[in-house]
């Protein structure tokens, strides 16, 4: 391939991403961004998104990190099957994820029925939003975290154990810090995915301002009527996503210094 041809292809690929994003900005009259974002529905949506994704991230880190460690470094019979199953939501269409969650945790769902008997209803609550985000985003973190743990030199583990570290200390004081770069990158990407979650939330949690209407759902809702607010929110989400990507790039450079 000629250099000019290759350059043109690269430029085309970049334009394919940049043009639609710029198009949002071009549609937004100057000053309209602030106006649009001052709409209560937009503010509520951003705050709700921040709150729910933070909770989802915390659960993801607390549960996902040890699970990824076990899967990557303590293989047991069937570990690869488990690993594959945990990755499934990544390739699942969000609408399917939403229906699946509904049938599991909905009012008449397998788990939801039991919970309902105990007086807990999940559908249409903020908890449902968190569950949907967790379901679609956690696999991204799990995958990255497993890769990061798998890349640790096994002799470090031996060294830690021969230094008197039990399994917990080995995990917290050696495995996690050594894999930190990959863990941070995975967490950032998963968080961004949770922030953008739409299909599963819409089906499973519904859309109600301040309760279940996250930023992506608000964009969808505001497009009917309050286009400026929808565009304003879109700009915020694009900016956040871009910042996350840059952050991941920078942090992976910082952490990947060989020892």
């Amino acid at each position: 391939m000629t250099r000019i041809g290759a350059g043109a292809l690269v430029a085309l690929a970049a334009a394919f991403v940049i043009v639609p994003l710029l198009a949002i900005l071009l549609r937004l009259p100057p000053g309209a961004l602030a106006d649009g974002l001052s709409e209560p529905a937009a503010v509520d949506a951003l705050l709700l998104s921040l709150r729910t994704t933070t909770i989802a991230l915390a659960i993801m880190l607390a549960v996902g990190t040890p699970v990824a460690f076990v899967l990557a470094r303590r293989p047991f019979p069937g570990a690869r099957i488990v690993s594959t199953i945990l990755e499934l939501p990544v390739v699942l269409p969000p609408a399917v994820a939403g229906v699946a969650l509904l049938y599991a945790f909905g009012r008449f769902g397998t788990v939801g029925g039991v919970l309902r008997a105990a007086g807990v209803e999940i559908a249409f609550t903020t908890a449902a939003v968190v569950l949907a985000q967790l379901f679609v985003a956690a696999p991204l973190y799990l995958r990255q975290a497993q890769a990061a743990f798998a890349a640790i030199d096994p002799r470090l583990e031996d060294a830690a154990r021969s230094c008197g570290a039990g399994p917990t200390r080995l995990f917290l004081r050696v495995a996690v810090p050594v894999a930190a770069g990959g863990l941070v990158a995975g967490a950032a990407l998963a968080w961004a995915r949770a922030l953008g979650e739409f299909g599963a939330t819409l089906l499973f949690a519904g859309s109600l301002q301040g309760v279940t209407q996250t930023a992506p759902l608000a964009i969808y809702a505001l497009l009917d009527g309050s286009t400026e607010s929808a565009l304003g929110l879109s700009v915020v989400l694009v900016t956040i996503s871009f910042a996350v990507l840059i952050g991941v790039r920078l942090s992976s450079r910082r952490w990947s210094t060989p020892w």
């Binding site: 031996d158 060294a159 021969s162 570290a165």
Partner: peptide, 16 residues
Amino acid sequence: ERREVGLVFQDAALFP
């Protein structure tokens, strides 16, 4: 971790 041993590896295997 409960044995009274110290282990020195060929390539040191220090915690990075």
